[in-house]
Deep mutational scan, measured.
Amino acid sequence: MTVLPKDIPGDSLKVTVGTANGKPGDTVTVPVTFADVAKMKNVGTCNFYLGYDASLLEVVSVDAGPIVKNAAVNFSSSASNGTISFLFLDNTITDELITADGVFANIKFKLKSVTAKTTTPVTFKDGGAFGDGTMSKIASVTKTNGSVTIDP
């Protein structure tokens, strides 16, 4: 049996954390987006972790974005102690894959008090994996961190 590389060099799934701005007490939304989904033969499963400074940001909610089908079954998240974990699994293993680019999740943060303008990162942590529509590992994932700026 011969195994051929399935990824064209330079191609990767792009996962990007967005940015937001606000004043202390505001609730802002930071999107997590996927790009080049079709090039990577869709997404059938993924789990990953984001870190944030809990002294500056309070997670209000984490909701599935419009590219997630049947989110009540296929999407899960949790947030505590400065870490947000995400889990997606197409429970049907074929019919509810992520097949389009767009917003995977929206994180709502309540901004805490600061004395001066502060930009705090929302960054990928170690761990996690992504699988394509056949549940094979997506070897190349380009992750881009985001941030939230609090301006009193």
Rank of each mutant, 00 (worst) to 15 (best):
F48L: 07
T94H: 03
K23N: 11
T99M: 12
I8D: 10
A38R: 13
K23C: 14
V17T: 14
D151T: 15
T19M: 09
N106A: 06
V28P: 10
K14E: 14
P152D: 04
D7G: 11
A54D: 11
T19D: 13
F109T: 02
V60C: 13
N74S: 03
V30T: 10
F130M: 04
N70R: 13
V3N: 11
G25C: 14
P24S: 11
I93V: 05
T99A: 05
V3E: 14
K112R: 05
D7N: 12
A105F: 14
F104R: 00
T16C: 10
T83N: 15
T45W: 00
T33F: 09
K41C: 07
V17K: 01
T149S: 15
N74G: 02
K23G: 09
D95L: 02
T45V: 13
K6W: 08
T94W: 01
V73P: 11
S78Y: 15
D95M: 01
G65C: 08
A38V: 13
T144Q: 06
I67Q: 12
V43L: 07
L87I: 06
G51I: 12
G18K: 12
S136C: 15
N74R: 00
T119P: 08
I93C: 02
L13A: 11
G127I: 00
V103Q: 05
A72G: 13
K137R: 04
P24G: 09
F86T: 00
P9H: 12
A54G: 13
K117L: 04
F34D: 06
S12K: 08
K112Q: 06
G44Y: 00
N70L: 04
V30A: 10
A35P: 06
V28M: 09
A35L: 09
V32R: 02
G10N: 11
G131S: 03
S12Q: 08
T19F: 10
P66G: 14
L56H: 13
S136Q: 02
T115L: 05
F104T: 03
V15Y: 05
V141H: 02
G133W: 06
T142K: 09
A129D: 00
T29V: 11
I150P: 15
V37K: 07
C46T: 10
A54Y: 08
N81D: 14
V68A: 09
D151G: 15
G102W: 03
N91P: 02
N21A: 14
K137I: 03
N70I: 04
I84R: 06
V30Q: 14
K143Y: 01
